[in-house]
């Protein structure tokens, strides 16, 4: 393996490791909410530093490779890889937010977790797993399907927010716990957005097509 190929391989491996951490963290965060598991929530929060460290290492490695002026697929791998790393770091942050809110919910026995949160968590978890899989395997059809799934997540987020605002109005004592759930839904919705970004970057990597803003395409 040449020196340059070794660097590409290191870049890919670090990105996959970061993706693995982000996926694990997101699943742990939502599980801690559903199972009201305070220990799992605490454990989840601790995972974020690994993702942050990998983001910095990937940026450093990516800049180093870019200074060697890669072309064609190599260039697309580094540019899309650095963007994906940024999305994964944000997924880590959103998972931390979910875990933090989860700790508060777990401490409140009166809090009721709506079933839609679990449903939303499952959809977003699949979106993230499929987007990462598309990045790894080049299954761009699957990547494009993820983009449409995001609308479903947005709708669920809206539904949860509307229901809980009504619940707060009806029972002001539930304000704190319901606000925590609203923020969890919002974080899940953001993770859906980041998964969508990763799917788009996978399409760019494998098809060299920019599908971010179809209305602006020539």
């Amino acid at each position: 393996m040449s020196h340059l190929e070794a660097e590409y391989s290191e870049f890919k491996n670090k990105l996959l490791l970061m993706a693995s951490h982000a996926e694990t963290m997101m699943v742990s965060a939502i599980n801690s909410v559903i199972k009201r598991d305070e220990d799992l929530a605490e454990e989840t929060k601790k995972m974020d530093s690994n993702i942050d460290r990998l983001e910095m290492e990937l940026d450093n490695l990516g800049v180093n490779i870019l200074s060697q002026a890669p072309l064609a697929r190599d260039l697309r791998l580094i540019t899309s890889g650095m963007k994906i790393s940024s999305d994964l770091e944000r997924i880590g942050d959103e998972s931390t937010t979910i875990a933090r809110r989860s700790s508060k919910l777990a401490a409140d026995p009166r809090a009721i977790i709506p079933v839609n949160i679990e449903r939303m968590g499952k959809i977003v978890g699949k979106m993230l797993a499929k987007s990462l899989s598309a990045f790894v395997s080049g299954d761009t059809d699957s990547a494009k399907n993820i983009i449409t799934k995001d609308k479903e997540v947005d709708a669920l987020n809206k539904e949860i927010r509307t229901d809980l605002i009504l619940a707060i109005k009806q029972n002001p004592n539930s304000t704190e716990s319901n606000l925590n759930i609203i923020f969890i839904a919002k974080s899940l919705e953001r993770i859906g957005d980041h998964s969508k970004n990763i799917a788009r970057d996978a399409v760019f990597l494998f098809e060299a097509k920019d599908i971010r803003h179809p209305n602006l395409s020539k």
């Binding site: 693995s20 951490h21 996926e23 990462l132 899989s133 790894v136 395997s137």
Partner: peptide
């Protein structure tokens, strides 16, 4: 190890 890493081998 996560699913992601397993997928790498396939790739």
């Amino acid at each position: 190890m996560s699913k992601i890493i397993e997928k790498q081998a396939l790739t």
